[in-house]
Design a binder for these strands. Structure first.
Lengths: 190, 190
DNA sequence: ATCGGCATGTAATCCGTTACATGATTTA
DNA sequence: TAAATCATGTAACGGATTACATGCCGAT
């Protein structure tokens, strides 16, 4: 059985308020992008299906100069559906951490290459962390208030902690690889 | 352009030594399963393709009572291929952390439900952490020695750090949600 | 006697990204 | 004048899981 989490992701955003496909994409991109994201190829077809199943209803707002806004609003039936999902326990979190693969097979290369790889990873993670921290400052001042605010805050804290763990690991790994390099050097020069 | 990381995951394992599809699956399952995994539906067809492309070569070992072992060995060409990949910098790590979704939409439910959800998540993470720590003790004594050993060790350290970050976050989140609950209680009873 | 491990593999189906197509408006 | 934002969507492709099929052996 496939679980179809994108469905619930999209339906979930609509519990926070009505919005368009474009809005939904923006929400992810500007908040928890590194931990959950959806593409248009997923969003638009799913919105249509959710509407057919009466979990959301669609209204069209005309604009001039800009394309119409297709606004989706969650229905009572939709709220029931997502509540059911929210109450089922999360399955095991399996991800694909490419950096680990590149590390594990690193003995194929020199330690210097692995170090460079991790430094690059580290640079990215530093940027992500900074972005998350900027977002944290903006929250409350920003566009998301109401009862979901403390929940969103906790989500950002999650991102922050995980990012920090990555960074601390990178420091440790680089140090360990430098030691390895020194030892290898000894064998060769002695 | 799609990147096809499974290819490299499989080819990469074979840099550590020859093995069967079954061995490859086992390697992931018993080491970094939470951070990278492959299914048979991915492994067997890919091994065939890698053989057709001369990145690996296949030999068959007959056994009695058990099915034949189809052993794949990486070729020089295969080693070149994976080195190229190892040298290209990692892209942004995007995952799908279901727990965050269930948290963000948590205001649909009561705080108690969110707490229960996170406690369940925490229990799982505790188990994962323990398994990783057991593996760390076994390494060296176990089946993986040689030059890749320090790399594998670092991979396990990664898992450990990330798992700890999850656990610390869970503690924080539960505490924050309990506070929320108290405040809500005040409003209702006052 | 049943369950887990060893060992192979395929088919169906779905998940998900990327690329494409369109076009006005605002900002740098 | 070029690029970003707003806004819709689809088609093609490939990634990845799940379920199924088969069968012996050893341990509990």
């Amino acid at each position: 059985m496939k679980r179809n989490r994108s469905r619930y992701a999209i339906l979930g955003i609509l519990t926070l308020g009505p919005g368009t496909g474009y809005d939904i994409k923006k929400f992810f991109d500007k908040s928890v992008a590194k931990f959950w994201n959806e593409s248009y190829g997923q969003i638009y077809p799913l919105l249509r299906r959710l509407a057919a199943e009466k979990f959301v209803k669609k209204t069209v707002q005309k604009q001039d100069g800009k394309p119409d806004r297709h606004i989706y609003t969650i229905t009572a039936k939709g709220r029931e559906e997502i509540k059911r999902w929210l109450l089922t326990p999360v399955g095991p979190q399996i991800g694909r951490h490419e950096i680990l693969l590149k590390l594990i097979f690193g003995s194929e290369l020199g330690a210097a290459d692995s170090i460079r790889q991790i430094q690059h990873f580290q640079k990215q993670q530093r940027q992500d962390l900074q972005q998350t921290e900027e977002l944290m400052d903006q929250i409350g001042t920003g566009y998301l208030q109401g009862p979901s605010k403390p929940y969103l805050k906790l989500a950002l804290r999650y991102g922050q902690r995980v990012n920090r763990a990555y960074l601390e690991w990178a420091d440790e790994a680089i140090a360990a690889l430098k030691d390895l390099q020194k030892e290898d050097g000894k064998h060769e020069t002695d």
